[in-house]
């Protein structure tokens, strides 16, 4: 088991390395632009540019710059924001926490909705199956930013008193915080819930046709015992795995959702930084979120392997 974890982590290292090269290279694709953005304005003298270039170490060879950047990143220093002149890490961390909360809520909602509809679809079959699958196709076609826009529109028109743009920090009011994230999490969760639902359906159908379910029926067990101990217990693993692998989609979607609902998370930070051309921040966010997604995938793999060892017949 430990060996498997180590091997899996070791396989991730070269990918992380590649990711860091892309995250670094992207922002240096237009070197002149980088200096101009760092200097803050476009109308600066050559001397100022030269000083900026030297301060940022841009006069060194590119691979050396990368080495320094990577070294700092590994030591927990992701550079300084061009816009605020503050350390990126100190600005990113609180926002990352907000995004993590939003993503987690959305993930839980998606799993709840998806597992329920998928289970109903697979067990009740017939019309229920038809309705659920039809609705799923439709839901999948509605992008999360459209959902969010429509939610904002509906609430703005019919419930103007509910301030849906009022993000409440967790420290001030935990319950209010969760309440203020509920609608954003819902709009983020809908598309992902379709994936969970479809996979739950497939998993339950797959498990239903297994011999051990037939054995359970031959034992005369009650329907609810079979459902809980035989069907759900076995179908749960693939469902959790799939939800875990949707993290990338959730993180990507949170950029849009946070911007629409004005939630001070990582997504909005990225959006602001893009419009300010705050390259160190963009670099940092690309690196951090890819790392999180990669590590999450490793975690899912490990969790799956743990269960798979029990499932595999050797």
């Amino acid at each position: 088991m430990l060996r498997m974890i180590l091997v899996r982590l070791a396989l991730t290292v070269p990918i992380l390395f590649g990711v860091s090269i892309i995250a670094f290279g992207l922002m240096r694709a237009l070197p002149g632009d980088f200096v101009l953005a760092a200097a803050g304005t476009t109308a600066v003298s050559d001397e100022v540019l030269a000083v900026t270039r030297r301060n940022l170490g841009l006069d060194r060879p590119i691979w050396e710059q990368y080495g320094i950047w990577l070294g700092n990143a590994l030591a927990g220093d992701l550079g300084t924001s061009f816009a605020t002149k503050k350390s990126v890490v100190s600005e990113l961390l609180p926002r990352l926490a907000v995004t993590a909360e939003l993503t987690l809520m959305a993930g839980l909602l998606a799993m709840l909705m998806g597992a329920t509809t998928g289970l109903a679809s697979a067990r009740l079959r017939g019309r229920t199956d038809w309705v659920v699958r039809g609705l799923n196709s439709l839901l999948l076609a509605v992008p999360n930013f459209v959902v969010a826009t429509l939610i904002v529109l509906l609430f703005g028109l019919y419930f103007p008193t509910i301030g849906i743009f009022n993000y409440v920090p967790f420290a001030r009011d935990p319950l209010g915080n969760i309440g203020s994230l509920l609608l954003p999490a819902l709009s983020l969760a809908l598309t992902v819930s379709v994936t969970v639902s479809e996979n739950t359906r497939a998993a339950v159908l797959e498990v239903s046709s297994q011999d051990y379910v037939m054995v359970a029926r031959a034992k005369g067990l009650l329907a609810r015992t079979i459902l809980g101990n035989y069907l759900v217990k076995n179908a749960l693993t693939p469902v959790i795995t799939v939800t875990g692998l949707q993290l990338a989609a959730l993180l990507g979607g949170s950029i849009l959702i946070e911007t629409i609902f004005t939630i001070p998370g990582m997504g909005q930070y990225l959006f602001d930084s893009v419009s300010r051309r705050d390259y160190p921040v963009i670099q940092a966010i690309v690196l951090v979120s890819s790392t999180i997604v990669l590590l999450m995938n490793v975690l899912v793999d490990i969790a799956y392997a743990r269960v798979d060892a029990r499932v595999s017949y050797d």
């Binding site: 990918i15 590649g18 892309i22 992207l26 890819s290 997604v293 990669l294």
Partner: peptide, 21 residues
């Protein structure tokens, strides 16, 4: 392995970063 690296990025995030750059 090269494709794995591109695959590792959340699609939308990578798109934003590239367009921003």
């Amino acid at each position: 392995r090269l494709l794995d690296v591109v695959f590792a990025f959340p699609v939308f995030l990578l798109a934003i970063a590239v367009v921003a750059a």
